[in-house]
Simulated scan of single mutants.
Amino acid sequence: MHLLRNGVKNYEWGSPHAIPQFLGDRRNGSPVAEVWIGTHPLSPSYALDGDGNEKPLTDVAGDLPFMVKLLAAERPLSLQVHPSRSLAEIGFAREEEAGIPLDAPHRVYKDTNHKPEMVYALTTFDSLIGFRPSAEILRVLGPLNTPLSQSLSDELRADPGFASIVRLIERLLTDDIDPAEVHQIVGAARTLGSLGMDIKRAYQTAVEIAEHHPDDIGVVISLMLNRMTLQPGEAAYLETGVIHAHLSGMCLEVMANSDNVLRAGLTSKHIDTAGLVAALNSGMARVARVTPDFIDYDTEVFSPSGGGFALAVTQISHAAPEGVELVRSEGSVLICTGGEVQVTTEAGDKVTLGRGESLYLSPEDRGATVLGLGEVAQAYVPPSRALRSRLVDVV
């Protein structure tokens, strides 16, 4: 077992208090957006031994196929899509050949991996995920009665369906749309909301996002997306090709080991319209809540098919004085999400974890058991024969 020291990302949309409080650190007022736990080369974790010496986690674990992020959003993240593996391989090779540095602002593909991901909520967590059905988008746009909303409605009504929605997104991202037209839509949404008219929180969402990005065309795009709220302990799975934007809250993200993101708005970062449109390949709302499976009474496992990863969440209490056995795997990352626990292996090794602390369990750390009072989340690659969690579409 190795305790981990993990990289921190201070993006502008982060929270100045959520992650520092979770980690027990002093707050300095700067936004803390993410903590990366894994072996991605842009921010690898370091493994500590019993004497406090550290070395890259890759020296201990090799390249892990998954990554865990602790994420806290106080402002909306960018509207984005994650590419498939084939698009990632092509895009990475193209940008490598062009000599674009990995840390260049206009670099899109940082690696050759696809990036499906699962969100496990630690607080109430709000996201925009996947397109609404055409009929619902038309219901949203119709009452706004602005020139832009009417134009979008006319186009979609003439040819409804996923392909037409993607064409609308492409048009919004490529046309030179006056910010005043965005302001008109936000004003109409605000007025309708004050009259008690809203359709599945579409108008509320546009008004909330406009407080942070008043001129951004992403505000208009948000009207076409489903809004999902996860309560603590709930999870959602996003396949590649699904447009999304996390809005607020704190979560654990488990994903393929990748940092490939194609953006569509609500950001000052580079937007690759053609690449994003090409990546939109997952139908109307190919996103699902993940229904966990239970191991005994203490552990629930979120294991979406196709992700290549799973998350086992274990509650530890005095009701299990001998501890709870963790899921056996060929290497896993464990993070304490509440309380204080002790992890013990068959060999007698012991590590104590407080909230926010994490460790790597190697294949040699057999029979790992956790004791105490708290909660731990364990990310790992499930065996091919493992049961897969049931997915429930949001629409």
Rank of each mutant, 00 (worst) to 15 (best):
L4G: 00
K9H: 10
Y11F: 15
W13Q: 03
G24D: 07
G29K: 11
A33H: 03
V35D: 01
I37A: 05
T39F: 08
T39D: 08
L42H: 15
P44L: 04
L48P: 07
N53A: 15
P56C: 07
T58V: 15
D59K: 14
F66H: 09
F66V: 12
F66E: 07
M67C: 10
K69H: 12
L70V: 15
L71A: 02
R75D: 00
Q80W: 04
P83R: 01
P83L: 02
E89L: 09
I90C: 03
F92C: 08
E95Y: 08
E97F: 11
A98Q: 14
G99H: 06
P101S: 12
R107K: 14
V108E: 01
T112Y: 07
T112H: 06
E117N: 09
M118T: 08
V119C: 06
Y120D: 08
L122T: 05
F125S: 01
I129Y: 00
F131D: 00
S134F: 09
A135L: 09
A135D: 11
I137Y: 01
L138N: 06
G142S: 12
P143V: 11
P143I: 11
S149D: 03
Q150V: 10
S153T: 12
D154W: 09
A158W: 04
A158Y: 04
G161V: 10
I165L: 02
R167F: 05
E170V: 06
L172V: 10
L173R: 00
D176Y: 10
I177G: 02
V182L: 05
G187F: 00
T191M: 13
G193H: 04
S194D: 11
D198Q: 07
D198C: 08
I199T: 08
K200A: 14
A206I: 02
A206N: 01
H212V: 01
D215G: 04
D215T: 12
D216F: 11
S222W: 02
L223F: 03
M224P: 00
L225H: 02
N226G: 05
R227L: 12
A236I: 15
L238K: 01
E239V: 11
V242C: 04
V242L: 12
M255H: 04
N260V: 02
L262H: 03
H270F: 15
V277R: 09
V277P: 02
L280K: 03
R289P: 00
R289E: 07
R289M: 10
V290L: 10
T291H: 11
P292Q: 12
Y297C: 11
Y297G: 13
Y297V: 12
D298P: 01
F302G: 01
F302W: 06
F309H: 07
A310C: 04
A312W: 03
Q315D: 14
I316Q: 00
I316P: 00
S317W: 06
H318T: 14
E330N: 15
S332N: 07
V333R: 01
L334T: 13
T337D: 02
G339V: 12
E346L: 14
G348L: 05
D349V: 12
D349S: 14
K350D: 10
V351N: 01
G354C: 13
R355A: 09
G367S: 13
T369W: 07
V370A: 06
L371C: 14
G372D: 09
G374H: 00
V381Q: 09
S384D: 13
S384I: 11
L387S: 14
S389G: 12
R390A: 14
L391Y: 10
V392C: 08
